[in-house]
Amino acid sequence: MWIFWLIAIPLVLFALGVVLSKNLFRSTIYLGATLVLTALIYLLLHAELLGFIQILLYTGGVATLLVFAIMLTQRIVGEDITQQSRGLVGGAIASLAVLLILFFFLGSSQLDFSVRPYPENLNLALGKNLFVTYVLPFEVLSVLLLAAIIGAIVMARRDR
């Protein structure tokens, strides 16, 4: 259990850093750290494959993309990368309200939260699920990715 807390507390701190940091670059770094720590959480939850994919895709892909975007806009704006926040109090109240409600549900839930065992051969079961049961959403997702790439290129193009 202590491993969980060892991961969870820095995770929350990094997340707060993402939303509070004045420096956009730092925010990105914190986000990367958050994502890596999340991958560790996945490992704790016996979702090893997902954890590695998380590092690969998120930390490798998304974080890089974000850095690109920041660089691009900074270069065009020529502005400092410091960023401000607005309505901190309102945001805090709203998000705390949501948090309270979520915890209220968690507290009042009648569910049994104890862990049940996964199938014997986890990776085989995962592969079967992914490529047999959910093969259609999987393929549709590939189309979505293609569409997103084309859309991003078209939108980001400078001239028509």
Binding site: R86, A94, V98, I101
Partner: peptide
């Protein structure tokens, strides 16, 4: 857009309270 989001949250909370 962010101010609209407050509306969404407010509405969501209302719905949840209604459900409770």
């Amino acid at each position: 857009v962010q101010d609209y989001l407050y509306g969404v949250i407010f509405g969501l909370i209302l719905f949840i309270l209604l459900g409770i």
